[in-house]
Simulated scan of single mutants.
Amino acid sequence: MAVMFEGFPRTLQRSALRPGRWFVAAEGPRPLLCLATDVVDGGEPLAVVFTLPDVEQIEVVPVPVAVLVEPFATVEDDVVFSPGQSEGLPMLVAPQRRAFRPGALLRLSSGDLGIGLVTKVSEAMVAVSLTSGMASEGFDLVFDRWSLSLRRGGNQTRIGHHKPRHLYAERRRY
């Protein structure tokens, strides 16, 4: 009988959270997928937290690392972001220069994939690299709609999709 090992989560201490580290925190019985960043708001380092407030709908929230409940665990899966429309076929969008909304997926000028955040204390718009966790200055493309999956080996599991709240309101009107 073959035994396969692809890795399993290790427990992390708060001191091990460096920018760019993906980890899982707990909020009651449900896990929160998080990314440690170098962004500081009100003197506290922030983590980008991907929550599921509704079925398959992802919300992106900047949260001070000090507020997150330990223990933390490493993420052993590949985190896969798919830009474009979350339901149905992908949507091709022409590149344009515009501001981004909180939670928007960004192609940064460095070539990295990033996420847009609004800090709570200073209310500043920040683009954070999903690779390094560092704040970034420039971006080329903005994707308001995207989906998130976890991939391990050949299996990929879709966690949910992100679509700004105003787009849900427009859909309900028709």
Rank of each mutant, 00 (worst) to 15 (best):
P31E: 13
L12Y: 06
P19V: 02
V60M: 04
A25Q: 04
E59Y: 06
V24R: 15
Q57K: 15
F50S: 08
P62T: 04
L46Y: 07
P53Q: 14
L17N: 00
D38R: 06
A47S: 15
P31M: 10
V39G: 01
V61G: 02
R21E: 11
F23S: 06
R21D: 01
L32N: 03
A25C: 08
E56D: 14
F50K: 08
G43S: 10
P45Y: 00
A16W: 02
C34V: 05
A26F: 11
S15N: 00
V48Y: 07
L35E: 05
G20E: 02
P64S: 13
D38P: 11
P19R: 03
I58S: 04
V48M: 10
G20H: 07
P29N: 05
V48C: 06
E56S: 14
G43L: 07
V63Y: 02
A47P: 08
P53W: 12
V40F: 04
E44D: 15
G28C: 08
R18H: 11
E59L: 11
R21L: 10
P62I: 03
D41E: 08
Q13K: 13
P45V: 03
G20L: 07
Q57L: 15
P31I: 04
V65W: 01
P53S: 13
S15A: 12
L35S: 07
A36E: 06
E56A: 15
P45F: 00
A26H: 13
V61F: 07
L12Q: 04
R14L: 11
D54W: 13
I58Q: 05
P45G: 01
L35P: 11
V63S: 03
W22S: 01
P64T: 12
P31H: 12
E27C: 07
P53L: 14
R30F: 11
G28R: 10
V63H: 08
T51F: 02
V40Q: 09
P29Q: 04
A36D: 03
G28H: 10
V60G: 03
T37R: 03
P29G: 07
V55H: 15
E44N: 13
A16R: 09
A26C: 09
P19F: 01
V40C: 02
V39W: 01
Q13E: 13
R21H: 05
V65E: 07
R30M: 07
T37W: 01
V60L: 03
P31R: 14
R14Q: 10
V65F: 02
P53M: 14
V63W: 08
P64D: 12
L52K: 10
W22E: 01
R21Q: 08
P64V: 13
V48G: 06
C34T: 05
L33G: 06
L12F: 04
A16I: 00
Q13V: 01
G43Q: 06
P45L: 00
G28I: 08
R30K: 12
L32K: 13
Q57M: 14
V24P: 00
E59M: 13
V63L: 08
L35G: 09
L12C: 06
L52T: 15
T51E: 15
E56T: 14
S15V: 09
V48W: 05
G43R: 12
T51P: 00
D41V: 13
L17F: 03
R10H: 08
E59Q: 15
P62G: 05
V55F: 14
A25T: 10
V55S: 14
A47M: 09
Q57A: 13
I58H: 04
A25N: 08
V61L: 12
P19N: 02
D38L: 11
F50I: 14
A26M: 13
